[in-house]
Simulated assay, not measured.
Amino acid sequence: MSLELGSELQWTKSSYSSNDSPDCVEVAATPGTVHVRDSKVPTGPQLAVAPTTWARFISYATVTD
């Protein structure tokens, strides 16, 4: 199985996810790609974006008080 299919990726669950929440996100970064998936469906579809795209998304999505 290829790395791009997620077999060797090191997934990290979002700190905003909880065990009883319906919204659980995991992220795995490689040098050229950031992979995102639903932690409840690890064999399901994944989103793969460039690290610069992910950084822009995170800066936009981050909520500050």
Rank of each mutant, 00 (worst) to 15 (best):
R37I: 08
I58M: 09
M1V: 13
Q10V: 10
A29K: 07
S7G: 03
A55C: 07
T62D: 09
V63M: 07
L3Y: 02
K40N: 12
P51E: 04
A28C: 06
G32L: 08
A50Q: 10
V36C: 09
E26H: 02
V34C: 04
D38T: 07
T43Y: 01
H35Y: 10
P42Y: 02
A29D: 02
S18D: 12
S15C: 08
V63R: 08
Q46K: 15
N19L: 07
Q10W: 00
S21M: 05
Y60P: 00
W54F: 13
A61S: 15
T12M: 09
P42W: 07
D38W: 12
S59R: 10
S15F: 06
N19M: 05
L9C: 04
V63C: 04
D20P: 00
A48M: 10
N19Q: 11
T52A: 14
S21Y: 03
Y60S: 11
L5T: 11
V36A: 09
T62E: 14
A28R: 03
I58N: 12
V27K: 07
P51C: 04
S2A: 10
P22I: 05
S21R: 03
P42I: 08
E4K: 09
A61P: 12
D38A: 13
T43V: 05
Y60M: 08
P42R: 08
L5R: 14
M1D: 08
E8W: 01
L5D: 11
S59C: 10
T33Y: 01
S14C: 14
H35C: 14
T43H: 09
P51S: 09
E26P: 03
S17W: 00
V27I: 15
A55I: 01
T62R: 14
T12W: 03
V41E: 12
T43E: 14
P45L: 09
G6Q: 03
S21C: 07
A48N: 07
I58R: 13
S59Q: 15
Y16Q: 11
V41P: 03
D38S: 05
K40S: 10
L3P: 01
D65I: 03
A28N: 07
S15Y: 00
P22T: 04
T53S: 15
G44K: 06
T62H: 09
T43P: 01
T12H: 14
P31W: 00
C24R: 11
S2W: 00
E4I: 04
S18T: 14
V36H: 06
Q46P: 02
W11H: 05
E4V: 11
S15Q: 05
F57T: 10
A29T: 12
V27H: 04
T43S: 13
S59E: 15
D38F: 09
T52E: 15
K40C: 13
E8N: 15
K40W: 03
P51G: 02
S15A: 14
Y60W: 10
S59P: 01
M1N: 07
Y16A: 15
V25L: 14
K13Y: 01
H35N: 14
H35V: 02
G6W: 06
T64P: 00
L5F: 04
L47S: 08
K40D: 13
S2I: 02
R37E: 05
V34S: 11
A29I: 00
Y16K: 08
D65C: 01
Y16T: 06
S18V: 05
D65G: 13
Q46I: 11
D20G: 15
T12S: 15
R56D: 15
G32A: 14
W11I: 04
T52L: 11
R37V: 09
S14I: 09
D65L: 12
V49F: 02
